[in-house]
């Protein structure tokens, strides 16, 4: 049975209204035990990976996803790029009084579908309701637990000169789709968030190229900011070749119109991998033969030196720094 209406403060009071919401919205989509205890007991492992992330994206629903899908992908991907096998998630919700329950249900259903796709279970959760105006619709926190296979260590500090830098698909899709959905700027086009869980892609990559030094998902700050962090951690230079970086037409068009740089626009379904040169071909092949990495490309290499440098399409060298504040549309 679907719940009608909007969220009221009663839904957060822990009484019958709360129980109904949990039963009819959360458990109906996410599943769960007959009796709800204060904690979930799950199978463990010698080493586990643990991460948490909070999602406040506006609008809650955007082309290619919604805050629920994003909340599952974001946490699953943080585990996956560490080389862990994502297993369990928690989900915490902050709901604004007046939120349409239909929207909440859409978000929760989307979390369930994405969790199934990512082969993780949402095993525990929490809901709080705040008065109208004290939050913007709904916020979601997810924490995730993954199992670390024995002997696996991936680290941003382990890159060596000669390594290849790969990206699993075109960049800037998520940030552009959300910005256009939120601000509009009068633009229409083929915008779609790249938001997707990356556990299986990471697994395929590690199977084909077991020497992978590190993987990262370039979310806030985009490709450039993430690679700056890797270069800094490994005390190396990463040199990118501009024309090899995949950027789709609509993203490039929107960025050009608004004066934004796609290198700094967020991705939510891409991974960056740094791979020893002798495994680069195998790694790229594994990414490209997987549906989540069909647009993968080799975009640069690790060298002796410092920082991130872009070999521009006219042979100039442009040092890239981490993003300083959100990019704003500009006319200059």
């Amino acid at each position: 049975m679907s719940v009608q209406g909007t969220i009221t403060l009663d839904h957060g009071e822990g009484g019958a209204a709360t129980s109904r919401l949990v039963r009819d919205v959360f458990l109906r989509h996410l599943g769960g035990p007959e009796v709800l205890e204060d904690a979930a007991i799950v199978a463990g492992a010698e080493r586990i990976a643990l991460t948490t992330d909070t999602f406040v994206v506006r609008p809650s629903v955007f082309p290619g996803g919604d805050i629920g899908k994003l909340a599952v992908c974001g946490t699953v991907n943080d585990l996956a790029v560490m080389g862990a096998e994502p297993r369990y998630l928690s989900a915490g919700f902050i709901l604004e009084e007046g939120l349409e329950i239909a929207l909440l249900e859409q978000v929760v259903a989307s979390m369930a579908a994405t969790a199934a796709e990512a082969c993780v279970r949402i095993v525990t959760g929490d809901t709080k309701v705040v008065a109208r105006g004290e939050a913007d619709g709904l916020y979601v926190n997810t924490s995730g637990v993954g199992v670390m296979p024995a002997g696996r260590t991936l680290s941003s500090a382990s890159c060596e000169p000669g390594d290849a830098v790969l990206v699993s698909g075109s960049i800037g899709e998520h940030g552009t789709a959300v910005m256009v959905a939120r601000e509009g700027f009068g633009m229409t086009g083929d915008f779609k968030s790249d938001c997707q869980p990356l556990g299986d892609l990471a697994r395929a990559l590690l199977a084909a190229a077991p020497g992978v030094r590190c993987m990262r998902d370039p979310t806030r700050g985009g490709l450039a900011t993430t690679l700056v962090e890797i270069a800094l951690a490994s005390k190396v230079e990463i040199r990118l070749r501009e024309e090899t970086i995949p950027v789709r037409g609509a993203v490039r068009g929107a960025c050009e119109l608004l004066g934004l740089d796609p290198l700094y626009v967020a991705c939510e379904g891409r991974l960056i991998a740094v791979v020893p040169a002798d495994q680069a071909d195998a790694a790229l092949g594994a990414l490209r033969s997987h549906p989540r990495g069909a647009g993968a490309a080799s975009i640069g290499e690790v060298r002796e030196g410092k920082g991130l440098v872009l070999d521009t399409r006219v042979g100039g060298l442009r040092p890239l720094i981490a993003l300083e504040g959100a990019q704003l549309p500009r006319i200059c």
């Binding site: 700027f185 009068g186 633009m187 119109l257």
Partner: peptide, 8 residues
């Protein structure tokens, strides 16, 4: 139309 984007 600009690349894949349209705007008024």
């Amino acid at each position: 139309k600009f690349h894949g984007v349209e705007r008024v």
